[in-house]
Amino acid sequence: MSKAGNVFPLIGGRRVEHLKDNIQALSIKLTQEQIKYLESVKPFNPGLPHTFIPADPNVTGSSFLIARTNAIKFPNAQKPTSL
């Protein structure tokens, strides 16, 4: 929740105690040093479909599929967009 503005944690459990513990855990605030340590333990793997679908050429500026056949420019590459 410290890294993005729109994060909506899903909490749950089988007992009321679990729900109370989950709600209490939402008040935990990690420091930047703690976040950096946690991220350094193991590289993040987004998993499928992100590892299967190539990156958006409008973001990266190139496409490995198109680059094999023809040079195409992506004018909107690196421009901020809003979802």
Results as ranks from 00 to 15, higher is better:
residue 1 M to V: 04
residue 1 M to A: 10
residue 1 M to L: 13
residue 2 S to C: 09
residue 3 K to A: 07
residue 3 K to E: 01
residue 3 K to I: 03
residue 4 A to G: 04
residue 4 A to H: 05
residue 6 N to K: 12
residue 7 V to F: 07
residue 8 F to Y: 14
residue 8 F to A: 10
residue 8 F to P: 01
residue 9 P to I: 02
residue 9 P to T: 05
residue 9 P to Y: 01
residue 11 I to M: 08
residue 11 I to Y: 06
residue 11 I to L: 06
residue 12 G to A: 10
residue 12 G to M: 14
residue 12 G to Q: 11
residue 13 G to H: 10
residue 15 R to S: 10
residue 16 V to G: 08
residue 16 V to N: 10
residue 17 E to F: 01
residue 18 H to C: 08
residue 18 H to K: 04
residue 20 K to Y: 13
residue 20 K to A: 13
residue 21 D to F: 04
residue 23 I to V: 09
residue 23 I to Y: 05
residue 24 Q to H: 09
residue 24 Q to L: 07
residue 24 Q to V: 06
residue 25 A to F: 06
residue 25 A to R: 11
residue 26 L to S: 04
residue 29 K to Y: 09
residue 29 K to D: 11
residue 30 L to D: 05
residue 31 T to H: 00
residue 32 Q to R: 13
residue 33 E to T: 12
residue 34 Q to T: 04
residue 34 Q to H: 07
residue 34 Q to W: 00
residue 34 Q to I: 03
residue 35 I to L: 08
residue 35 I to C: 08
residue 35 I to F: 03
residue 35 I to T: 07
residue 38 L to T: 03
residue 38 L to M: 10
residue 39 E to G: 03
residue 39 E to Q: 09
residue 40 S to D: 11
residue 41 V to M: 12
residue 42 K to P: 00
residue 42 K to Q: 15
residue 44 F to D: 04
residue 44 F to A: 07
residue 45 N to R: 09
residue 46 P to N: 05
residue 46 P to W: 02
residue 48 L to P: 01
residue 48 L to A: 12
residue 49 P to K: 05
residue 49 P to M: 03
residue 49 P to R: 02
residue 50 H to R: 14
residue 50 H to W: 11
residue 52 F to M: 14
residue 52 F to E: 15
residue 53 I to S: 02
residue 54 P to N: 14
residue 54 P to I: 07
residue 54 P to W: 12
residue 54 P to H: 11
residue 55 A to N: 15
residue 56 D to R: 06
residue 58 N to Y: 05
residue 58 N to E: 05
residue 59 V to S: 11
residue 59 V to M: 12
residue 60 T to A: 08
residue 61 G to I: 01
residue 61 G to A: 01
residue 61 G to Y: 03
residue 62 S to R: 14
residue 63 S to T: 02
residue 63 S to H: 04
residue 64 F to P: 02
residue 64 F to Y: 06
residue 65 L to W: 08
residue 65 L to T: 13
residue 65 L to D: 11
residue 65 L to V: 13
residue 65 L to H: 04
residue 66 I to N: 03
residue 67 A to C: 04
residue 68 R to H: 11
residue 68 R to A: 09
residue 69 T to L: 13
residue 70 N to K: 15
residue 70 N to E: 14
residue 70 N to D: 14
residue 71 A to R: 13
residue 72 I to F: 09
residue 72 I to C: 06
residue 72 I to P: 00
residue 73 K to F: 08
residue 73 K to A: 12
residue 74 F to D: 02
residue 75 P to K: 06
residue 76 N to F: 15
residue 77 A to D: 01
residue 79 K to I: 12
residue 79 K to N: 09
residue 79 K to C: 06
residue 79 K to S: 11
residue 79 K to M: 10
residue 80 P to S: 10
residue 80 P to N: 13
residue 81 T to D: 06
residue 82 S to F: 09
residue 82 S to N: 05
residue 82 S to A: 06
residue 82 S to L: 07
residue 82 S to Y: 08
